[in-house]
Amino acid sequence: MPSAPSKLYSDDVSLLVVTLDTNPFFWSTFSFPFSEFLSHVLAFLNSILLLSQLNQVVVIATGCNSCTYLYDSSSDKNHGSTTGSMPSLYSDLLHNLEVFLAGDQQLAKPRVNAAGGGAPPPSLLSGSLSMALCYIQRAFRSGPIHPQPRILCLQGSADGPEQYVAIMNSIFSAQHSTVPIDSCYIGSNNSAFLQQASYITGGIYYRPPHLDGLFQYFSTVFATDLHSRAFLRLPKSVGVDFRASCFCHKQTIDMGYVCSVCLSIFCEHHDKCSTCGSVFGQAQSNVPSSTDRKRKA
């Protein structure tokens, strides 16, 4: 898959949309406390606002049942000035975060009771990515002069294979509007979704090896505006996990069947494509034919 073409940016004014993973199932089992993580993030956001009067920061919470806008530095409450937002960045964001977490927990209750345990639910990354893109579209349409948008995903919990289609669609739409998706993944294993997202959109994927100096990683890597990226050597992705999820059971697969009409992916043979309704021919005995099979690295 081709990486997004690099665009030339004339100035360093940025619109940074941050998606913040608030999944309680992840944070309760993770070695690094959420509060400490948050203090690094807040200092980072503050430093972005510090860099230019016209910089704008939007924070979106990624819960496991819902997503919401936590903070917008351009909203009326802040008078559009950075001075007003400095203290309000902390208070507003923390207040909204508390409200959101309570609401998210309320939504979770019926589901947990029904499911009765099992694997911890993943965060709704697809939801927050879509919200980020919606916000950016609004900025694009606000006029010919707007800050350069980019998305930063702060993610810790593991990928949810059932969100595969939605996330890929978000990634392609970000690629289409040349919005880079940076990802800072702090979980134990690499996230295939975020690796692909950053690779396709020309963003940076980075998994900090030490979480104590998180602010240093943020300020060195992710604070770099799009204009300066043309002159700097930033972390390159070493290997990208391109594995897809099947549409029928939402499992991550190495090999599978691909609909020749709409490119939907299935882990087992079907008579009919569940997405576009095309009727497939008979699979040749038990060995799938080479035309219907797609091999992915």
């Binding site: 360093d12 300020s219 505006d225 700097l232």
Partner: peptide, 18 residues
């Protein structure tokens, strides 16, 4: 002062801040 710096300058300050 920070805001008046060229983009790379801003980045260097932030990088060496701590």
């Amino acid at each position: 002062i920070l805001r008046s710096l060229p983009p790379l300058g801003k980045k260097y300050v932030l990088q060496l801040l701590h």
